[in-house]
Design a protein around this nucleic acid. Sequence first.
DNA 1: GTCTATAAAGTGATAGAC
DNA 2: GTCTATCACTTTATAGAC
Lengths: 202, 202
Amino acid sequence: MVTTPVHPLEKKDPKEEILKAALKLFTEKGYFNTSIADIRQLADVSTGTIYHYFKNKEAIADALYTEVVRSLEESFKEIRRLNNAFERLRAILELFFELTENEPEIVRFIVMVRHQEILSQRPPLSQSPPFRLLDRIMEEGIRAGELRRMNPQVATAVFYGTVARMALLRLEGVLEKPLAFYLLDTWTAIWRALAPANEKGA
Amino acid sequence: MVTTPVHPLEKKDPKEEILKAALKLFTEKGYFNTSIADIRQLADVSTGTIYHYFKNKEAIADALYTEVVRSLEESFKEIRRLNNAFERLRAILELFFELTENEPEIVRFIVMVRHQEILSQRPPLSQSPPFRLLDRIMEEGIRAGELRRMNPQVATAVFYGTVARMALLRLEGVLEKPLAFYLLDTWTAIWRALAPANEKGA
DNA sequence: GTCTATAAAGTGATAGAC
DNA sequence: GTCTATCACTTTATAGAC
């Protein structure tokens, strides 16, 4: 974004074009089924340009990983400012459902790509900052009595497992309607699983 | 198994050795990071032997997929004979948790391998027979009033999403204790999410 | 910064002896 | 059925002109 020209329509930033093409190809065909030649073609640049901006193919995936994790962490931090666990979790659910419909490639990258198979250096997403933040949101909610007393890791697994599964089924075309259609049922189920024992069903 | 020799200790079936090695390598390093040479070495056979039993590398992955799906379907069919949704889902949860501890490579293959990236012909696991069976178990449970009235696809997503996430976190080493340790919390959460409205919390 | 041309290496798969 | 040797090809990555 820093290098975006003053007149946006004139010329496109090749680095951004490369990343955009790579995200599309990696999530559609998979990292290993995507060659540099594929990226070159879709981004409409030459091999030399790709290697001018990125050390190698892995570095492209790494840049995507970093950006997605950073953006997710930013959203989660924002959401953490909400008043209680109910509102925070609800907001994260809605964020994922909305992202799945509007930015399917990003969610594909989050829930479908096996990052460890590509980026052996990086931790699995489940240990990246945004997911640690999710764990903390759970711990705080349990401590505050806003969530039922339970193992916080299990709470996170129930929550994120459900959310990610819904996103995956939607991206695979198994769920035919937009995720908004399933939002109420999904939230009711999640909240029943996590709500304090005395609380009503949502 | 058909070709297992009378004296099991004498000679190993090369086909089984190849499959065993491939399962280990595919789930540990990934399909594309595993070369025929790697399989050859671990299975202690020659390249020629591999291509005698399998048309190509993809056919090895296909054989593994077929066997895992078949075995899972068999277990689910057995479990379906139980009396109600409560017992059936509980049994599936326990099956997955036990499998994760005792046969981690099989569960890795189920929850971590991106089959579609390798086997473009096969449906995603979410549409394979055992998972269709799981959907039917949910539908029947809802119709019988053993589960809360809700979209059955959401019910399946909550259930399997949670189970798969717990297995994944365990396989990634995030959960330090055996899954049995988390069984009660996991089941309580799942059952609260799915139980009929009047029912107590497990 | 961007391009074309090409090098260097690894891979899946085959041929043919035993 | 199993082996060794090797082909044919793709792929990543580099060199060097413009």
